[in-house]
Amino acid sequence: MSLEMVRIDDRFIHGQVVVGWCPDIEPDRLILCDDEIASCDWESEIYQDAATEYETSVCTIDGTARLLGDDKTKKERIFLIVSSPAVLVRLMERGVKIERVTVGGMHYHEGKRKIANYVFIDDTDLEHFRYLVRNNVTLEARDVPTCKPVDLTQKLKLR
């Protein structure tokens, strides 16, 4: 298994992912990792219908950790999508190895501050980003492949 891309995007699978990134990455499998969506059959189906060209798995955090360690995905190029850095922390705590994380969209909610047009964070997010950086993850913000990546480790002074 190779994690070709790990993306944080609270819209999960949508145009930027399907049309923007997938042709670049050519993944064998998209994994949408979210406990809430994975526990809802119809919502899982909507996301599976969203990118019919690509095999899509909708998994819980535990399910994702299991799938990534499974023989089934051994030779696959994986595109992993989560909604927040908190989910990545929990995946890493379950032994998932992550080297690079791309933030593609964390949208505005009350109490979050803007760090890029498409990235709004609060102190909890910041702590989780810090955990990722401490565990040698390269952290960047980049919504679409044609956009220049923003070094979040530097921008957020995480080191």
């Binding site: 699978i13 145009g15 399907v18 119809w42 909507i46 219908d49 019919t52």
Partner: peptide, 16 residues
């Protein structure tokens, strides 16, 4: 316009 796009997602959830 786009199957799988954000407009499509919102509409699909409403249609359900």
């Amino acid at each position: 316009s786009l199957r799988g796009g954000s407009c499509w997602h919102a509409a699909a959830k409403i249609a359900r």
